[in-house]
Design a protein around this nucleic acid. Structure first.
Length: 151
DNA sequence: GCCAACGTTGGC
DNA sequence: GCCAACGTTGGC
């Protein structure tokens, strides 16, 4: 069992959007970074725990708990010519991009990035490192437990 | 809107 | 295979 932090722009999919989805589950489409894709494709298992993080917004931070509900499969948006995530180099035979599905566990209070940064036990988290832009990052089990205890 | 940091692209 | 140019991310 692994732990992850996954960023979503709330203007795209927010925690409240997830709450109101059928099955409270969403395809984590649109990842176009190989490292993030590889995490989903090679490491994520059903039941892995996910911190649902709001990025690029007024109050960035952890907004809820979720879990992986489906193993990685080809991201549909890569094939869709009208979609902003369309990839002309991807084909059905040789897809380039994959996504898992993620299901809500529960919405939590917002734990702001400020607070994460101010928590000594969380100082090594990847999202706090300078220049980090990766939208999916592994989380240490102890870090996950620390966060869970204050949500 | 700014800008630092980083990933990707493509010419050579 | 190098690396400059470009595009994107994401906090502020």
């Amino acid at each position: 069992m692994r732990y992850w932090l996954m960023k979503s722009e709330p203007s795209d999919v927010s925690i409240d959007d997830l709450v109101s989805m059928p099955d409270q589950s969403v395809a984590w489409y649109g990842i176009r970074n190989y490292q993030a894709r590889n995490f989903m494709r090679d490491q994520m298992q059903v039941g892995d725990k996910v911190l649902f993080y709001h990025s690029s917004c007024a109050e960035p931070g952890i907004a809820g708990l979720a879990e992986v509900s489906r193993l990685a499969y080809p991201d549909e948006t890569q094939f869709d010519t009208g979609n902003k995530y369309f990839d002309p180099k991807a084909t059905r035979e040789t897809p380039r991009w994959m996504n898992v599905d993620v299901r809500l566990v529960r919405k939590t209070r917002l734990m702001p990035l400020r607070e994460i940064r101010a928590t000594p036990k969380l100082a090594n988290m990847r999202i706090l490192q300078k220049g980090n832009r990766l939208s999916i990052t592994p989380v240490d089990p102890r870090e996950y437990a620390t966060i869970l205890s204050v949500l």
